[in-house]
Design a protein around this nucleic acid. Structure first.
Lengths: 349, 349
DNA sequence: ACCTGTGATGTTATCGCTATCATCAATAGG
DNA sequence: CCTATTGATGATAGCGATAACATCACAGGT
């Protein structure tokens, strides 16, 4: 591999990238000392450190962490897998993870599945090949092979956004079903009786089907009709699909008093569609969402929804991860952490 | 390193993770053959491959790619740095990248800066330490040190979402200023004369300030007043800030006919706020956004905006990257690719 | 002056994999 | 039947860093 004018960098130096040895030679020290100089809390004399820093700058050297992690057996990153980056609930969780990782020397490697467990399996494998020090997943539904890989990986695994019946390792989440039940109860207490539900078609979105389950359970318990369920579109369902779904719902059950939606996005679509048709919300029909996205607090009328501590889920998951990784002399963190949710009542109900 | 009961995995096997040598021993072949069996297009006999596959399954072996890439000098990933994952424009770009990478054996490592160039610099360094085979950035504004690192990295660098005056390497983007000019011209042609602009305060968001620049330029060219500019909040400005900004604007210049916003999100906030105050859009005031987010097509009234090919930016950036990486015997791809944008006229103007 | 502890550095041996070259058998071509 | 070609496999030598141990100099206590 002596080929050289191959890097094709616009300008700047040509040739192979400098290694730690190049730096060491230039600074007149051994590679080991360079390695130490690049690490916090190592004993390197001030003069030497300065020479090394200078050599690094002159050469434009950048540490090769992949080589380092092979040797130190620490890759310095954790993996997180979320359904979609294009959903602010999950990206809030990702922010929570990043923030909690700040200062731990760990970096986040993010992947997204588009709500597909098959894609999740691929991602799990791709991630594990890079030897993360821990992995955070969304939900408790995995392929059998994905699950097996996680169990055998020998790293802490955290499932989030859910309360799986049979967790792989640790969990930070809440019961989506219970949250929806609470919403139904809150609204029933206000006098609503004829509830409709708008969600996606398949069981692909496990959180979605749990929400639907909660909807049905709560109504049955209250002795109210629980059959007004519209399944529309492949999850995650969009604003536009929410709009279309509410139309179907009103055609089929014109006297529906309140439409609960699997997420704020579809709820928003429904809300706008109702206004477009000249219906008054909440007088003609009430609408509530799930997730407390930015849009729920800002639309007109402002929307009732379930607030979920998305950011906190990420933060706590990452915290639990770093605690486990660092061994935490004292004790292992709790296996299961339940996060808060609450009904946010606004003008749309 | 004989310590063993240390992995602390919930259940499953204990002990060190199996290596390729363990697999090789179990399958009765050499490690090299295992390595070949794990790679497409290598000559391994069917019988051997089966034995190896079986051994892999029995041991639960997962390839250690970080060791592999040290040896092969190919890490198999590309880095992308975006301002925010919580913004569907950029996450669409990320999707475009992922999709274009599909089947190339390259994986995406995503980082986000929260619109901070300092954070970008940190991320660039963190990424380069892992030796990506290429890197995709958002915008052309970097710290001097960040820029230097990119220039010296010896890998293809693609700046996107912008048309930097002095690109580092390759570019896939569009002129944010020109796009805003086009929007102003389109609306001026409909007869609007008193334009206002709502955006963030600082120059931190370079795309935002270019849009503002385009707004001013177009109005000056048309001989219309260009001073109705509200700067509100640190970019990226939220829906809520858009709502507050439009209030300031109407207090200061009550006869404003049309409010252009730095993004659909702030435009949406403004739109809702106007309705809350009983103003009719577009009769009392027209509103337009930028970005053509999902919300623009779905809100009521539907919003006029600039559609930008976010997904295409990602796709083309990744394509250009893989072409460069693979050498493309024939020729280097174009240095600069301009992507499309267009005005989408809807009911809000 | 002697011992000890500590800071600053170097040496050596991997980490787990793959590039490369070498080997040997089987197949094909003349 | 002999040589050239290809396929299947193995042996060896790193890739670029760091862990672990080894030195060596020097400060301080007695």
């Amino acid at each position: 591999m002596t080929k050289t004018a191959d890097g094709k960098m616009g300008d700047g130096k040509t040739g192979e990238a400098p290694t730690m040895n190049d730096v060491a030679r230039r600074a007149g020290v051994s590679a080991m000392t360079v390695s130490r100089a690049l690490k916090e809390g190592s004993h390197v004399s001030k003069a030497t450190r300065e020479r090394i820093t200078q050599a690094i700058n002159e050469l434009g050297y950048v540490l090769d962490q992949s080589a380092g992690s092979l040797s130190s057996r620490r890759t310095g990153f954790v993996a997180a897998i979320i359904p979609s980056i294009n959903n602010s609930n999950f990206s809030d969780t990702a922010r929570g993870i990043t923030d909690a990782l700040e200062g731990t020397g760990l970096q986040l490697l993010l992947g997204y599945t588009n709500y597909s467990v098959e894609r999740e399996e691929e991602l799990i494998e791709a991630m594990l090949r890079r030897r993360p020090e821990g992995i955070i997943l969304t939900g408790g539904a995995h392929t059998p092979r994905g699950r097996r890989m996680l169990e055998q990986a020998g790293i802490p695994v955290i499932e989030t956004w859910d309360t799986p019946a049979d967790p792989i390792d640790k969990v930070v989440g809440f019961s989506n079903g219970a949250a929806m039940e609470l919403l139904v109860e809150t609204l029933a207490a206000k006098g609503y009786e004829r509830f409709g539900y708008i969600g996606g078609t398949t069981a692909r979105d496990t959180r979605g089907s749990q929400r639907r389950g909660g909807f049905v359970r709560a109504l049955e318990r209250l002795g109210l009709p629980s059959d007004r369920v519209i399944s529309f579109g492949v999850p995650p369902i969009s604003m536009e699909q929410g709009a279309q779904a509410v139309v179907s719902m009103l055609e089929r059950w014109p006297d529906t008093q309140v439409a609960l939606c699997v997420s704020d996005l579809s709820a928003f679509g429904a809300l706008m569609e109702c206004q477009r048709r000249g219906m008054k919300v909440p007088d003609d029909i009430a609408i509530a969402g799930f997730g407390d996205y930015e849009i729920a607090a800002c639309c007109h009328p402002r929307m009732t929804t379930i607030n979920v501590d998305c950011y906190g889920i990420g933060r706590q998951a990452a915290l639990k991860l770093t605690q486990t990784i660092q061994g935490m002399a004292t004790e292992e963190p709790e296996r299961i952490t339940l996060t808060d949710f609450r009904v946010v009542e606004r003008e749309s109900t």
